[in-house]
Amino acid sequence: MSLATDARRTTAHAAFWMMTRRVTILAAGVDIVFFGFFLWAGSPLLAWLNVLSVGLYAAANRLLVWRRNRVALALIWLEVVGHAVIGTLWVGWEAGFNYYLLMFIPAIMVSGDWPRVGVPLGTLFLTYLGLHAASSELGPLAPIDNTALVLVNVFNIFIFFTMASYTARFYYLLVRRTEGRLREHAMCDALTGLFNRRQLIALADGEMARARRDDTPLSLALVDIDHFKQINDGLGHDVGDQMLVHVSALFLACCRASDTVARWGGEEFLFLLPNTDADAAFHFAERVRRAVVGQPLTSEHTDVACTVSLGVTTLAPGETLDDAIARADQALYASKSAGRDRVTRAGAAPAITDWDGRTAC
């Protein structure tokens, strides 16, 4: 499992337990309201039962702060089931205390696969049926007047809708965030945060269509870190990864808002430069080269310098992206052959010239 996956899972768990803490606070507030209500309705047993419930929720909240999550959940289950059973048997099924049992269903269903949810879900189902049967058989043990019964029923329905809406909203937002992370993972390189090859190709299709429609130039710059294998072998792969992240930040700093840079593979990167002709692309690539030379990586109090070689090209009318990239790759190879740390541009002519204007073979 990757560190990124661990981090996402940890974030989701933290959000769940924060939601659970908020639910305990809301539930304790509901029980405080019930305390006054049942004193008014002439049911002191249920009134003082709510005082006990407030204490249980306060203890559960504190246990969640201490990360004693299993014990906290046990207290919450004890309070909700106990309160639902006693309230239903005491004042009747019509009071609506049974609704609180149903709020466990979403939490159970997202807790794991079917073997894990089967037992608690079955237990909840049997408890609900048993409570209904007992309430129908015994009737309310301490009935309250009809006005109070209607009020408590409406209040319980309101709280059930509020709690259910809040938890449903939480899971909806969690799914949306997860989908966003999956899309980001599909589009971006995990190490550098730049777009990956697949996403750049998708963006290039749109830019090529726009360039044809508007009759504007579209250029590419292919970049390779010089002697990257020596950095990895000599200083370790951690420093190599740091170098990739470092130069990626420099590349982004050189880009305009309309430009795109992607990790093309390994230590190779590709710039997509809309509305950029051959000369402008060459000067852009030279600016990128100088930015890397001028800002070495600082790693463990040591500056690690590197250089980059670049090949630039401008798409010809009717040319495919693959053909243009192949020409940029040839220009990059010419930069490497001519001594590295330079920009070479590929033109329509067979000869490829480097940034000093010399012919490179």
Rank of each mutant, 00 (worst) to 15 (best):
H132Q: 10
P143E: 06
F97Q: 11
N146V: 14
I76W: 00
P115K: 11
T123M: 10
W66E: 15
V80A: 02
A74F: 11
S111M: 06
V65W: 13
F97Y: 15
M103A: 14
G130R: 02
D113T: 11
A134T: 12
L141W: 04
M163K: 07
T162R: 06
R116N: 10
V71K: 11
A74L: 12
W93G: 00
M163F: 08
A95F: 05
P115C: 12
P120W: 09
L131R: 08
N146M: 15
N153L: 09
A164R: 12
L78F: 13
F158K: 09
G139C: 02
F161M: 11
W77C: 09
F161V: 08
S136V: 01
R116F: 09
T88Q: 06
H132V: 08
H83A: 04
G122L: 15
V152Y: 06
I76L: 02
G122T: 14
M103H: 12
G82Q: 04
A84E: 03
L64S: 12
E79M: 03
D113G: 07
A133T: 13
E79Q: 13
L138K: 11
P140V: 14
I159T: 13
W90G: 03
L151W: 12
I159L: 09
V117A: 07
G130N: 01
I86A: 14
V117W: 11
S111N: 10
N153D: 05
V81E: 00
V119R: 13
L126H: 11
R70W: 00
W77G: 04
P106F: 00
R70L: 09
W93H: 02
A74T: 12
L149P: 00
G118R: 14
I105M: 05
I159N: 15
E137F: 07
L149F: 02
G92M: 07
G122C: 13
W77M: 05
W114I: 12
L138G: 08
T127I: 09
S135M: 02
E137D: 10
V80F: 01
V71Q: 13
V80Q: 03
V152F: 03
W66T: 10
Y99T: 03
T88I: 00
R116I: 05
L78G: 07
R116T: 06
T162P: 04
D145N: 11
N146F: 15
G92K: 10
F160L: 07
G112W: 07
V154C: 05
M103K: 07
L102W: 06
W114Y: 11
A164K: 15
A164W: 12
F125M: 11
W114L: 08
Y99M: 05
L121P: 04
D145T: 05
N146S: 15
R68A: 04
E137G: 07
W93Y: 06
R67S: 03
Y128N: 14
Y99E: 03
V81R: 02
I144V: 08
T88L: 01
A107K: 08
V91I: 10
F161N: 12
Y128M: 12
P115A: 06
L149T: 06
G92S: 03
A134P: 09
I105H: 10
A142Q: 14
W66C: 04
S111L: 03
T127R: 08
A95Q: 05
L149G: 02
